[in-house]
Design a protein around this nucleic acid. Structure first.
Length: 324
DNA sequence: AATATCCTCAACCGCCTTTCC
DNA sequence: CGGAAAGGCGGTTGAGGATAT
């Protein structure tokens, strides 16, 4: 016995939406909202559609500020970098591209961008469709976009006898591409996928680069700038990172976490409190917008925490911590 | 001009996760 | 706490338009 269907399949219309249906759905949602119940919505709106179908139509096509049309080079780069870091998690990727939907990005990747990248990575080969997926993943693996060199989008430090090991530079940073393999305004094959050595920063000679740091996080980060708190919090939960946010961000976060928020740029902690998040199973702390904090505050945080890994969101902090 | 083939993308399907009771 | 319902997501499909022959 399988799962019960979400609606009466014999009584719902399928296939492309007519302009009339679009208008009905749009008008209803603009007037009443979704009411938090997509399943009940079509009946209320007078539509013979499955609730899921309505949801999809709204999210992918009808809701305001949807961007249609060509993807920019910047968008290409973001997609490529995020795909290399987190794979086909389209909703997370979409959260980084305001106005784009996960469906859009998925289609674009599967039909165009993957081929575009394949051509750049391997301009001479004629790869048939049946081999494309395998070849593509092996190409990714053979390059800086491979999982073995992937890194979270920020700067990682491991505390060990008061020495901070730094892996510098925005390595594979999906949202900041100053050293990105795809950083030119148009794709050029000679700029694609730098060798691992190129990740070494000028400051590196002072500090030992620990390969284990590459494992910190294991996820691309999400910026809060587009207000995509939901995905961001999922990310934080998934990676078991504590999250340190400034006041301005806390109101958004509050909606999603049960927190122990303290005043003025203090730790934002889950209900278990600091001890729970300092437990050794905790991967580390994510420090968003570290420039919002005093350096002393960050120093204190590091020295009082039993946690070894911190992710910072900018390289000014990286530099300071290096010399600390 | 007719036909075949390819390409795009909206929409569906089914599974997993989250929320609610 | 467990089960059901709903939400959310990623993979896949197929209609229709574009292009090649």
């Amino acid at each position: 016995m399988g799962r019960a269907p979400c609606c009466d399949k014999t009584n719902v219309k399928k296939g492309p939406w007519s302009p009339e249906e679009d208008a009905k759905l749009k008008e209803f949602i603009e007037k009443h909202g979704t009411g938090g119940n997509w399943i009940a919505l079509p009946q209320k709106a007078g539509l013979r559609r499955c609730g899921k179908s309505c949801r999809l139509r709204w999210l992918n096509y009808l809701r305001p500020n949807i961007k249609h049309g060509e993807f920019s080079d910047d968008e290409d780069r973001i997609i490529c970098n995020l795909y290399a870091n987190i794979g086909s998690r389209w909703s997370i990727i979409a959260a980084q591209l305001p106005g784009r939907t996960d469906n859009d990005i998925k289609n674009y990747w599967n039909t165009k961008l993957k081929k575009k990248l394949m051509r750049l990575l391997n301009p001479t080969s004629q790869i048939g469709p049946q081999h494309q997926a395998t070849s593509f993943s092996s190409l990714l693996q053979a390059t800086a976009l491979s999982p073995s060199t992937q890194l979270s989008s920020s700067y990682s430090y491991r505390r060990s006898n008061h020495i901070y090991y730094g892996l510098s530079g925005p390595v594979n940073d999906p949202t900041s591409f100053s050293s990105s393999p795809l950083s030119n305004s148009s794709f050029t094959s000679n700029s694609v996928l730098q060798p691992e050595e190129s990740f070494v920063s000028p400051m590196q000679h002072n500090y030992q680069v620990k390969e284990s740091l590459l494992m910190v996080g294991g996820e691309a980060s999400c910026s809060s700038s587009d207000g995509s708190w939901n995905n961001q919090i999922n990310h934080v939960k998934e990676t078991e990172y504590g999250y340190i946010a400034s006041n301005s961000e806390q109101s958004g976060l509050q909606n999603y976490l049960h927190t122990g928020i303290e005043e003025d740029h203090k730790l934002l902690l889950p209900s278990g409190g600091a001890e729970e998040w300092s437990h050794e199973k905790q991967n580390g702390f994510w420090v968003d917008n570290p420039s919002d904090y005093g350096f002393e505050e960050i120093k204190q945080l590091i020295s009082t925490s039993s946690c070894n890994n911190f992710l910072f969101d900018d390289n000014k902090t990286e530099e300071k911590i290096m010399y600390y």
